[in-house]
Design a protein around this nucleic acid. Structure first.
Lengths: 117, 117
DNA sequence: GGCTGATATCCATGCCTGTCAATATTGATG
DNA sequence: CATCAATATTGACAGGCATGGATATCAGCC
């Protein structure tokens, strides 16, 4: 489902080199849209910066004044686009970021010399 | 309005170093949300990759099968978050990307060693 | 000043989404 | 098995957003 976008990015040139195809744009837009919410951005930040590179849902929930289902919803969105993975250990579920995914986006937005002047 | 997010990013560490504050997250989320649409993503790509680093609205409109007001709307969104600038020359309006803005996002998503393992 | 082409704004509409209450699921523990 | 804590799912609702038609603005031209 998202694999194609991932594929495209891994060997793809940055944004400016050639116009994005519609399919690639759809896949990428989903990932950016997932980051396009303040709560989700903070979640990624919290998880990425947490001890051991992982955080359990309770850690995240405590950082917001939002209902637990809301946090769960946001986690699902981030997981669906491949930005987070989850692993259950005992009663707790631990989330961690997918560094490759962030790296792809970072590379895509890296400004090539032609444009940067 | 968006200057604060810009400010924050310019000297800020990447996502994982410390949890994003709510205000920063709101500003950044707006930019990511602007990129969270396939049409807008392609627009940025087209403008960035266009001859001379700029494209007029007609160039962009021709690349889609969307009504002109729709393209105009997307351009406004991208401009409002600081990803594009526009300049009127004669009858045409030319848009260009703001490289610093892309660079900020790219840097923010760059994966630090702790997380990349 | 009128006319024409390029772009922006306004308005309406249908769809998407963030939020939460209620409920279900899952795992540990007694 | 009953219970409790942690997390996910469901359903509903309000606000937001992408789209396009109609219209306005703006620049060049006759």
């Amino acid at each position: 489902m998202l694999m194609d976008a991932l594929q495209v990015l891994e060997c793809g040139p940055p944004l400016a080199r050639r116009p994005l195809g519609e399919g690639q744009a759809v896949g990428l837009a989903r990932v950016f849209k997932a980051l396009g919410d303040p709560v989700r951005l903070r979640i990624v930040s919290i998880v990425a910066g947490h001890q051991g590179g992982e955080a359990c849902v309770c850690d995240i929930t405590d950082a917001f004044e939002l209902a637990q289902p809301t946090i769960s919803h946001h986690l699902k969105v981030l997981k669906d686009v491949g930005l987070l993975t989850s692993e259950r250990r005992a009663s707790w579920v631990y989330y961690r970021v997918v560094p490759e995914r962030l790296a792809e986006l970072s590379a895509l937005l890296a400004v090539p010399a032609e444009v940067a002047g």
